[in-house]
Amino acid sequence: MSSTEAADDDHVYLSLAEGHDDGDARWAFGTGFSDPLHGVDTAVPDAVDGSALAAVCLALGDDALVASQRLAEWCTRAPELEEEVALANIGLDLLGQARMLYARCGQVDGTDRREDAYAYFRAPADFRNVALVELPNGDFALSIARLLILSTWRLALLSRLAGTSDPVLAAIAAKAVPELTYHRQYAADWVVRLGDGTEESHRRMRAALRELAPYVEELLTATGDTVPGILAAPDTGTEAVREETLGVLRQVLAAAGLDLPERPAAPYRGRGGEHTEHLAPLLEELQSVAREHPEATW
């Protein structure tokens, strides 16, 4: 995760060896997994509905965590080293977004839970991510097409949430916008390169879009108690996010010589906890170490 340069490594070891006398116990499975919102003012404005806010944070956090776990699966398997590093870094950004969203969720849902409780100690049916992010990686084309769809929608939504009435969610969203802009650019460039590339790369990208098309609608129509339902800022909402998402996808796919096939929506309702059979094994792997050693610190 960190730099490969010797000087950097030396520094990291030095700072670990220096000993931190700040009294913060460390979560056992990584360095520095302490509260990502450490010291942020956590008050919830009177006008904000805490449970709706928590639902949004959870849904967006779960999308990011599950997507980041799928991206991490590309480590040692990507077609080129550069792409492996790119996918890992994109996953790291999403993981960071998930951590802050979980931390905010725990502050406002009345349970006072910390990020680890959300990531490691919930059952699949308690997760609120869309089915799109939990599908297996497939080939590089499928993973890239999924990244394009996810980052396009997430950017459209979070750029609007940056103006929402909860200042912490607004700040988390604003921070994510440049990151998602980069993710979308990376995925879009690859979709065009593959779609407009060889016969084989075109065929694979077309097949990927055909497989993913049924999962797009769930992102765009998530309703009621979930994401667009609580968009408090003016000029936001399901319609604007839908239009922007589909517009950008059309722009990219046209340049790639492709389109998003019309297919019936998949029957899953991830926002309501109804998932594909792929989520449980993903979480089992993600959660296995933490569950074997609960509350371990060092």
Binding site: M1, S2, V12, S15, E18, G19, H20, D21, D22, D24, T31, G32, F33, S34, P36, L37, H38, G39, V40, L92, D93, L94, L95, G96, Q97, R99, M100, I172, K175, A176, E179
Partner: peptide, 30 residues
């Protein structure tokens, strides 16, 4: 970055150096 893995190290480094310089009470805010 949201996922910057160095953030906790930075926080700890700043606190440790301030403590070493004789400041007993240190609070780090994000």
């Amino acid at each position: 970055y949201s996922g910057c893995p160095a953030m906790a190290e930075m926080r700890a480094d700043v606190a440790a150096r301030l403590h070493a310089a004789g400041f007993a009470q240190v609070e780090i805010r994000t």
